[in-house]
Write a protein that binds this DNA or RNA. Structure first.
Length: 428
RNA sequence: GGGCAGAUGGCCGAGCGGUUAAAGGCGACAGACUGUAAAUCUGUUCUCUCACGAGUACGUAGGUUCGAACCCUACUCUGCCCA
């Protein structure tokens, strides 16, 4: 299978410019994707573009990951119904550094290879590009009529929030990136999410008009969930690639909870499994959905890709322990150190032993103090609503007292909020 | 610079002098059912309080009134139109 065939099979191609496939078959092609430095870590929404670059490199082409130090200063209006707030320069620089570091994990930068990956920051070519020069050199080639026809612009003109000149300019800035990379890196292909199509096409247009060159593009569909809710959110918010923000355990859990319908699509998109392997899993899954082999495989593959095999092993250990029917019995057989090691990544809170002995607080106070809940009121509602378990035992009595005897090994207390959210409380 | 419209809880959106902590929807969380799914049904969803209750809140600051999200004034911000 060639690259495009494979990506098509995986469901990763939405739109493609004519000639793209031929270009990729003809020669080693340099291609790029831009990443927005809106935070100092990428989240799983960026996983698809990352994977596109990885697939591209595996197919023998040369990937460039572009960090938008400059475009991040402007703000992409695509898919946004409102004007964005500008990030300060310091924040932006931190973010660029963080994002860069993460991207480096996923691609092969070994310069002995002809298709070694590269990282670029568009701030490098924009920082000394004056406004006047920009509007003369770049702006002159694209008509306002053309720019206004873009969906991202049209929507905002029709909407009621309007659009600043800054964001209106965005497509030109990004378009120039493509032109610049075309000129200086012989980069002929840009990829991205389907929301980027308009911006990308402005780039190819600029290359055509300004350089008389031909450049190509394809986009992948935005990841959706079958129930229509937003992909990439857990009850704690974004799912990040940075393990200090979202632990491998939480990351693994996120994927494990994918619905059947979604998982069947995701396994093609987010893993490198071959069609045969995927088919086999789908066949095994059918009729045995309760075993959730599909979700497990999905979670394993992605967690290993992002966090490595060791982290995956720990995530599975913790999962097996917490969601087992014999959690308590197993724990009884483990030493403190073994427990600590097994439960890496499970949200943990420490509380002083003296405090518990001295106060033996009621469960509501206790849960509020250990930060499982923000307030007593919230904790109370949840206990009354039958949503809290201590050491796997439902507790619905608001006045229940907590003392050291509640702790396993005199040290560990498992608080469960709902069915799936565990907090480990350690008495120290 | 001038005219017009608007600013309500995480979001959308009703309310237009007392019965409004503010309809409805979305989102979020929980319960039931299940497979740690999905769909469905139920409950919760400003803060504090065991609770009775209390405190804040409808862009900001004043004012009118027994009483204001609702009326008046000024200001701020947003959009539209004109110059």
């Amino acid at each position: 299978m060639n690259l495009i065939d494979e990506l098509r099979w995986r469901g990763m191609i939405q739109d493609m410019m004519p000639g793209t496939e031929e270009q990729l078959l003809k020669e080693m092609t340099t291609a790029y994707i831009g990443f927005d430095p809106t935070a100092d870590s990428l989240h799983i929404g960026s996983l698809v573009p990352i994977l596109l670059l990885v697939h591209l490199q595996k197919a023998g082409h040369k990937p460039i990951a572009l960090v938008g130090g400059a475009t991040g200063m402007v703000g992409d209006p695509s898919g946004k119904s409102e004007e964005r707030n500008l990030l300060s320069e310091e924040v932006l620089q931190q973010n660029v550094a963080g994002v860069k570091k993460q991207l480096e994990q996923f691609l092969d930068f070994n310069t002995t290879r002809p298709n070694a990956a590269e990282i670029a920051n568009n701030f490098d070519w924009f920082k000394n590009f004056s406004f006047l020069n920009f509007i003369r050199d770049v702006g002159k080639h694209i008509t306002v009529n053309y720019m206004m026809a873009k969906d991202s612009v049209k929507k905002r003109l029709e909407g009621e929030t309007g659009m600043s000149f800054t964001e209106f300019t965005y497509q030109l800035v990004q378009g120039y990136d493509f032109y610049y990379l075309y000129k200086h890196k012989n980069c002929k292909l840009q990829m991205g999410g389907s929301d980027q199509w308009g911006n990308i096409v402005t780039g190819t247009e600029l290359i055509r008009r300004k350089a008389g060159g031909e450049a190509f593009a394809f986009t992948c569909p935005l990841i959706t969930k079958a129930d229509g809710s937003k992909f990439g959110k857990s009850e704690k918010g974004n799912v990040w690639l940075d393990s200090s923000r979202t632990s491998p355990y939480e990351f693994y859990q996120f994927w494990l909870n994918t619905s059947d319908e979604d998982a069947a699509r995701y396994i093609k998109i987010f893993t490198f499994l071959s069609p045969e392997e995927v088919n086999e899993i789908l066949v095994q899954h059918k009729g045995n959905e309760y075993q959730r082999k599909l979700q497990k495989k999905l979670a394993e593959e992605i967690t290993a890709f992002v966090h490595g095999r060791d982290a995956l092993a720990k995530a599975i250990q913790a999962t097996d322990l917490l969601f087992s029917k014999e959690t308590l019995q197993i724990i009884a057989t483990l030493s403190h150190d073994e427990l600590d090691a097994t439960l890496t990544g499970v949200p943990a809170v420490e509380i002083s032993r003296e405090k518990i002995t001295a106060e033996s607080p009621d469960i509501v106070t206790f849960l509020a103090e250990t930060a499982v809940f923000a307030s007593k009121g919230e904790a109370r509602k949840m206990v009354q609503g039958n949503g809290i378990s201590l050491n796997k035992q439902k507790v619905s009595d608001v006045s229940a007292k907590i003392d050291l005897s509640s702790f396993i090994h005199n040290k560990y207390l498992f608080v469960q909020k709902g069915k799936t959210n565990y907090y480990l409380i350690k008495a120290v």
